[in-house]
Amino acid sequence: MSQKNILLILSHAPYGDAYAKEALDIALTAAAFGLPVSLLLTQDAPYLLLKSQQPQQIQQKNFANICSALPMYDIENIYIEARAAQTKRITLDQLVVPATFVNQADIALMIRDHDVVLRF
């Protein structure tokens, strides 16, 4: 199979709508297919990784648990838009997986350097 890589950019927070869940399903499937997948969390998406989520009362699956499986799916390149994290006062130690902050210039280059870029 070809060595195309995928950059998946998420922009929505969890729970309020289906974007994040449906985008993550694409990431997990593509990774299970053997495609190298990088994940970039922008705008409201950094909230997906918060350890402190407890969605039992709204009867949803916990995104903290789902996202903590990303390394098991060989999705280890997880990036967070630094600007978005700052405005939300989100720090790396609050997150379920190791991630890297990137600035706007990094993001532009990441988009250029991936073969397929999907944004949700």
């Binding site: 922009s11 922008t42 705008q43 706007q104 993001i107 532009a108 280059l109 988009i111 250029r112 350097d113 870029v117």
Partner: peptide
């Protein structure tokens, strides 16, 4: 290796437009 970006929301969606414009390269 250039990119065609499409955008389908009005500029009132400032967050989307900001993200989009800052991702565009020469």
């Amino acid at each position: 290796m250039t990119t065609l970006h499409t955008i389908n929301k009005a500029p009132s969606d400032t967050s989307l437009w900001q993200s989009c414009l800052s991702a565009i390269l020469p």
